[in-house]
């Protein structure tokens, strides 16, 4: 019985984690900020290292750290449009280096680096499962509540602001929630793989459907399928779960490419 409870927690963790990222994925892809997901997850690594070094709460420290950095990045990006990509790559590698140095300072501390790099749904606790559930709910509320704003923000932020939509405010909320999605998903999806799950579902969805709301739904469904099937596969074949889910999402993406090739134009 206990074993099934454990298994159920792990499957639910995989599904909720994939779905939360998939819900954000259409907006991240349309706004061409997938590199941001990549950067934020690596920046989270420095946050984790700081928290370990200072003995602070791992989750909250990392969350606050990444939210602040994401706001700083979007502020920088607005100021200096061209330097954006470079600045973020610098941020990314520096925080990775910082994290590694900080963690090595704490040698002797038993820290399971691999589980943070690659994620492990089997390690997700009951409390973390609730967090993931809360995250999915929050994402749904955000997207459903501010759909029109998000739609035009993704189209062109400057024009959205001109047409008196609070584009800056919605963008800030978007960045905060994106950061939260990445940090809360680190345990389940891993630093290296979290951004893959932020890009693949929507890339697939946009090959299948033409409207943004359909793409959000389609992304979520694809993610549920990939999570359940990926989990089962990893369980039977004894493979790492996160990587299996990402590979499955990639197979779905390839399939969608050929589907688009067949579809009437």
């Amino acid at each position: 019985m206990q074993f099934y409870g454990f298994l159920l927690t792990a499957v639910l963790a995989a599904v909720l984690s994939s779905v939360s990222l998939a819900l954000f994925s259409p907006f991240v892809t349309l706004r061409r900020i997938s590199y941001l997901g990549e950067a934020l997850s690596h920046i989270a690594f420095a946050g984790i290292a700081f928290a370990l070094l200072l003995g602070w709460n791992l989750h909250w420290t990392t969350l606050v750290f990444v939210v602040l950095v994401s706001l700083a990045i979007s502020w920088l990006a607005k100021r200096h449009k061209l330097a954006e990509a470079n600045a973020i790559t610098i941020f990314l590698s520096v925080s990775m280096a910082l994290g590694i140095v900080l963690i090595s300072l704490r040698n002797g501390y038993n820290f399971d680096l691999a589980s943070y790099l690659f994620g492990n749904v089997l390690l997700v606790s009951q409390a973390e499962l609730w967090q993931l559930g809360g995250l999915v709910t929050l994402n749904l509320a955000f997207i459903a509540g501010l759909y029109k704003e998000l739609f035009y923000l993704s189209y062109n932020a400057e024009m959205a602001q001109f047409y008196r939509l609070p584009a800056n405010l919605v963008n800030r909320l978007f960045m905060i929630l994106l950061a939260a999605n990445i940090v809360i998903n680190l345990r389940a999806a891993g630093i290296i793989l979290v951004s893959a799950q932020l890009i693949l579902p929507a890339s697939t969805a946009f090959n299948l459907v033409r409207r943004l709301d359909h793409a959000v739904l389609c992304s979520a469904l694809l993610a549920i399928f990939a999570a359940v099937a990926g989990f089962a596969l990893s369980w039977w074949l004894d493979l790492p779960t996160g990587a299996s889910i990402v590979l499955l999402e990639f197979v779905l993406y390839l399939a969608s490419l050929s589907w688009r090739g067949l579809a009437p134009k």
């Binding site: 739609f151 189209y155 939509l165 946009f206």
Partner: peptide, 24 residues
């Protein structure tokens, strides 16, 4: 704008009215 952005001509014109509506 991105030419593949999933908006219709109607969506684009509605943008001109977006500011008249309350948030959300």
């Amino acid at each position: 704008f991105d030419r593949r952005f999933p908006a219709s001509a109607l969506d684009l014109v509605l943008m001109g009215l977006a500011g008249d509506l309350p948030l959300g």
